[in-house]
Amino acid sequence: MKIITKDIKFLLFKARKIGINNKTDLFITFILLVGVFATLTNFLNWIFFHANWEVVSRNLNLYIIGTYPKALSWRPFLWISIIILLSFTTLLKKLNYIKKRFIYICWLLIIPLGIYLLAGGINIIPISTNFWGGLSLTLILTFISIIIALPIGILLALGRQSNLLIIKKITSLYIDCMRSVPLIAILFFGQLLTPLLLPVGMEINRVIRAIFSFSIFVSAYISEDIRGGLQSVPQNQIEAAKVLGLNKYQINKFIVLPQALIIAIPALTNQAIGLLQNTSLMAILGLVELLGISRSILANPQFIGSHLEVYVWLALIYWLVCTIIALLAKKIERHFSKSLNFQGDL
């Protein structure tokens, strides 16, 4: 008898620990559990017994490299494998100083390597961007656009903070206009208008036009995130630097910007993730990146009605890539914010 009351007390204690305090709580929890359970079993049931995964398994190559020539498909595959490998080493290994440096350099080399492998050129056969597609196109669009947008964003942020009135006004105008237009419009007109802006006879291809549009769009958003970072660097830091005789340029370069960038890492990560998701908009404008290629697969009469399978599969890929980016950024942030006493909890 004594033991039973003890057990019940222990159960009640456990229940309280997960937030069940009274009968209403118990009731709600019960209903929720049933709901969650039913949804989960339905979903799993569908995944394992009803879904027809042929639409995924028979087109795996297409999802990852698009219509890239079969014989050369090792090139995009190699690139993606290196990215995956690098991500996992960065995430899983505890790294010392030298290895950190090495990995840092590897990440910087990912973009030129990707361009070289996909586009070809010296020593390997050139492949037109018309054949790029799938996840490899999604990734390269994201990486290149971010790497272009970041320095522009920094300059815009500094411009908007500047006390030179003309520079401040022009950068503000640019940032505010860019931020009020929908991305799809920028992309559409980027495709349509860039030929008009260029000198007669000069032409650039669709992928480069897309990168151009993404960069000018995202740079405006990035600049606002960095401005937020700049504003949260405490005033006494600037004062301390002044006292040491540093000039304005040096104060920005050594004291304010590094701290602002560290503060802005979470916001910048969100921009990168947002950009990766938004590359899917190019599906509307005729690029066959991950979503675009899926739409053409779904248009194939053979796979009619397989929308749900394809969308679940795509959601999984996007979710995985975005989550990996988020984790990488967390790692970087933790590394840097160790030093900032007003950021992070390490």
Partner: peptide
């Protein structure tokens, strides 16, 4: 008002090197 993102040594050497 030390610079939180720099090591102790860099805090001290920043101005001699830059200024």
């Amino acid at each position: 008002n030390l610079f939180p993102h720099l090591t102790v040594l860099s805090n001290i050497t920043l101005a001699p090197i830059q200024v």
